[in-house]
């Protein structure tokens, strides 16, 4: 029997920061100071996310690993430029990740593979039923739910841009619509997504 009395607690006490594992932000701070061990920990905690996103865009595994390595060297190199005021460490890392993946897809042969494999697709990836951690599935669910609040046109444009790595001009070509329309769909869609996901600055 858990016969306990209800208690009321005050606001978060100051101990919590001290007793927690290092946040990514403080790891980045250490990395910025040249701490290689902190970098190793940062890598261990984010590499599968980074590679996952790169591979989503590039598909080819060997090439994705190569790009992932470049990304982590860039993280090492540019960590001193990270500004915690400007957003989370994870967002900073994934922003860099996506940009690098897109640069690669646009500058290489993989663009052709991409054209063959994509067509127009949904954000639904083929999920391995086993290996998936609960949190990832939830995150995926959450994004899927938010994506469901977009119009079909917005969703299509955002998926092509983010997961396909296509530029607005390419998307305009694929969908046979004006670039201005693509830009509008991307912006309106992202704003709606932002609101659905509760992202605020």
């Amino acid at each position: 029997m858990l016969s306990l009395v209800t208690s009321h607690r005050g606001p978060t006490d100051t101990e919590s920061a001290e007793s927690t594992a290092a946040a990514l932000e403080s790891l980045l701070e250490q990395v910025a100071a040249g701490d290689q061990q902190a970098f190793g920990e940062l890598y261990d905690r984010t590499a599968s996310r980074v590679l996952g996103l790169v591979k989503r865009v590039l598909v080819d595994h060997a090439q994705s690993e190569e790009v992932t390595q470049e990304i982590f060297l860039e993280i090492w190199r540019t960590a001193p430029k990270f500004e915690a005021m400007r957003g989370s460490a994870m967002s900073w890392i994934l922003t860099m990740t996506h940009r690098r993946a897109v640069d690669r897809v646009r500058s290489s042969q993989s663009g052709h593979d991409r054209d063959e494999r994509i067509g127009i697709r949904d954000i639904e990836p083929a999920y391995d039923h086993v290996a998936e951690s609960v949190e990832i599935r939830i995150e995926h669910e959450r994004v899927k739910r938010a994506m469901a609040q977009l119009t079909d046109f917005q969703r299509e444009a955002i998926s092509l841009a983010y997961y396909g790595g296509y530029s607005h001009t390419e998307i305009a070509g694929i969908l046979a619509i004006p670039v201005g329309t693509v830009k509008t769909r991307l912006r309106d869609g992202m704003i709606r997504l932002r609101d659905a996901l509760g992202v605020a600055s």
Partner: peptide
Amino acid sequence: SRLGLAAQ
């Protein structure tokens, strides 16, 4: 970046 987090 949330879209990125949703990638496998």
